[in-house]
C-alpha cells in the first residue's frame, strides 16, 4: 500500500532516504542513487517525450513548401527547428539515465516506443498549422510547465528550456487562426474545420482520466508527475475556450457549459475508444510517420558514417604529426 509520501512497508534504507529527499523537494541528479523503477519510468517517459518532439515535426513539415507567404514559411521552419532541439534536449536528459541514443532511435523505428498520438492525425489544410500551434503546443505548454518542477534535475532543466521556446509556437498558431477567422467566409470555415478536428485529440493529449491512469499515484509520490491528467486538462480547457470565443469560432462540443459555481468549463464525454485506437493502431497516418522517420534515418546513415570516418582520419593524422 502506498501512502501519500510514497513510503512503502519493507523499503530499504536507501529507498527511504531517496523518498525523503524527494519529499524535501530536493532534486535527484544523474549519479545519485535511485530505485530502478524510478530510473525506468523516467527513461520511458523522457524518451517518449523526445520521440513526440521529433515525430511532431512531420505533420508540420508537410506544409513548409506550401505555407502561404515567405514570412509564414520562415516562421514554420523556425518552429520545426525548435522541435528538433526539444527532441535533442530530451534525448540528452534520457542519456543521463544510461539510455543509449541509438537504442532509443531503434525503439521508435521498430514501433516499440510510443509517442504522442496527436501526431498521427493528418494536416489537411493550412488552418491545421494554426490549430496545431494554438491547441497542440498550447496543451504541451500546460503539461510542460508542470514538468519544470519534476524531481529529476536534467529533465526539469530540459523542460525549462523548452517552455521558454514554446510560447512563440502557440502565439504564431493563434495568429494564423486569427487571420483566417477574420478573413473571407471560406477562410473562416477552414479555421472552424481545423478546430473541429483538433479539439478532441488535443484534450486527449493529457492522457486518460485520473481514475483510469495506471502509474499515476507512484509517479506523483516520486514527483515525476506533479499534477494529475484531469487537473491539467481542465486548466487547458479553461484557458482555451475564451480564446476560441475571441476568434468567434465554436468549440465542437454540444455539452460544453460554464459552471458558475466552480468557475470552470465542463466538457462532454471524451471519445476514449478513438484514443485507444490511435495509440494502438497508429491513427490515420501512424504508419506513414514511422516510415518517414525510418527513411530519414537510413538515408542519413552515410552522412553519419562519413563524418565519423573523417573525424577518425583527422585524429590519426594529428597523432602521426605529433609522433614525428
Amino acid at each position: 500500500m502506498t501512502n501519500v509520501t510514497g513510503l512503502q512497508a519493507g523499503e530499504s534504507a536507501e529507498e527511504q532516504a531517496f523518498q525523503a529527499k524527494i519529499d524535501r523537494e530536493e532534486r535527484i541528479e544523474p549519479k545519485d542513487w535511485m530505485p530502478e523503477g524510478y530510473r525506468k519510468t523516467l527513461v520511458r517517459q523522457i524518451s517518449q517525450h523526445a520521440h513526440s518532439e521529433i515525430v511532431g515535426m512531420l505533420p508540420e513539415g508537410n506544409w513548409v513548401t506550401r505555407a502561404p507567404s515567405l514570412k509564414r514559411k520562415a516562421v514554420l521552419l523556425a518552429k520545426i527547428q525548435d522541435e528538433a532541439g526539444h527532441g535533442l534536449y530530451l534525448y540528452s536528459a534520457a542519456e543521463t539515465l544510461d539510455a543509449s541514443r541509438d537504442e532509443m532511435t531503434e525503439a521508435l523505428h521498430d514501433g516499440r516506443a510510443k509517442y504522442s498520438s496527436i501526431f498521427n492525425y493528418p494536416t489537411l489544410s493550412w488552418a491545421d498549422i494554426g490549430a496545431i500551434g494554438w491547441l497542440v503546443d498550447g496543451a504541451a505548454i500546460v503539461n510542460q510547465v508542470a514538468l519544470c518542477r519534476c524531481s529529476y534535475g536534467p529533465y526539469a532543466r530540459a523542460m525549462e528550456r523548452i517552455c521558454k521556446e514554446e510560447s512563440f509556437h502557440q502565439r504564431q498558431g493563434y495568429e494564423i487562426m486569427m487571420v483566417l477567422a477574420q478573413g473571407t467566409p471560406e477562410q473562416k470555415e477552414m479555421a472552424q474545420d481545423a478546430l473541429n478536428r483538433w479539439w478532441g485529440p488535443a484534450l486527449m493529449m493529457f492522457g486518460p482520466h485520473d481514475s483510469n491512469s495506471v502509474h499515476s499515484s507512484r509517479n506523483m509520490a516520486w514527483k515525476i508527475k506533479r499534477r494529475s491528467n484531469d487537473d491539467l486538462r481542465q486548466q487547458f480547457i479553461d484557458m482555451t475556450v475564451p480564446q476560441a470565443e475571441y476568434l468567434d469560432l465554436s468549440i465542437p462540443d454540444p455539452d460544453l457549459t460554464w459552471n458558475e459555481e466552480t468557475g470552470h468549463y465542463e466538457v462532454g464525454p471524451i471519445d476514449w475508444d478513438e484514443f485507444e485506437r490511435v495509440v494502438k493502431g497508429g491513427g490515420p497516418v501512424g504508419r506513414e510517420r514511422i516510415r518517414d522517420r525510418r527513411r530519414a534515418w537510413e538515408e542519413g546513415a552515410w552522412v553519419r558514417e562519413a563524418a565519423l570516418a573523417h573525424a577518425e582520419k583527422r585524429r590519426q593524422r594529428k597523432m602521426q604529426a605529433a609522433a614525428e
Partner: peptide
C-alpha cells in the same frame, strides 16, 4: 571518470561496431 550529467556506469553500452557519434 564519467560525464558530469551521467551515465552512472562506465564503458561501452552495447557490443558491435560503434556508429554512435561521441557525446
Amino acid at each position: 571518470q564519467s560525464r558530469s550529467e551521467g551515465p552512472r556506469s562506465e564503458g561501452p553500452r552495447s557490443e558491435g561496431p560503434r556508429t554512435e557519434w561521441p557525446l
